[in-house]
Amino acid sequence: MTDIHAKEQTNIKFTVESLNLFYGDFQALNDINLTIEKNEITALIGPSGCGKSTFLKTLNRMNDLEPNVTINGNIYLDSVDVNKDMDAIELRKRVSMVFQQPNPFPKSVYDNVAYGPRINGIRKKTQLDEIVERSLKQAAIWDEVKDRLHKSALGLSGGQQQRLCIARTLALEPEVILMDEPTSALDPISTMKIEDLASELKKNYTIVIVTHNMQQASRISDKTAFFLLGNLVEFDTTITLFSQPSDKRTEEYITGRFG
């Protein structure tokens, strides 16, 4: 398998081949094939229950946490099979995740960001200080929290909490950031800030974002994948998918005829 992928372009981050996923007897993902490129934002869209979040979770094996999930097919991260040849902990350090509901830990702002580095054995205070400051700056929240680093993160607003959660993943210097509807619980201004942030972050990171919001997908993503009932219906550059969808179902969905 390895030589096949070696021939492919080097800017491919993830290659997904004939991926099927079952919750018990129910098949939630049907033969998914797709590639995710480095330094791009890939948006996953589709109606509720279409499998887009489930698919996102397979990329860092978060569905390992749920019982009765079976997966077959292959997912390669830089040509290494994440299910067979990689440890889940190692994978999640490289492919981090931001959730729909902001989920800061009930700790101080500082301890939230330092959590990842600390579990990787970084103990020196100067080094941690530096990582915390850099990550918060990258997540565009430093100015808002620099005076309250040692106060509880639970006192921040929802939008601030979500940027803190992004900072928390950035502190690990991952290669890929997965975002599962990161703005659906936020107000329009916070949403805009997160979108700007995502566009900024793609210079250094690969981003995969699940969204309900088609304007959001068209605003920030380079590629878009449309999921329906566990199938990947269409996957193309965002411009093409939204202007000239090749599948009728995609067209119906993006023009708001269902969903």
């Binding site: 946490l65 902990i89 981090s96 995740m97 959730f99 990787n120």
Partner: peptide
């Protein structure tokens, strides 16, 4: 909240 566990696991914590 489920998010505490997910958040920690997603950062590569055991």
């Amino acid at each position: 909240p489920k998010g505490f566990k997910e958040g920690s696991m997603a950062l590569g914590a055991s």
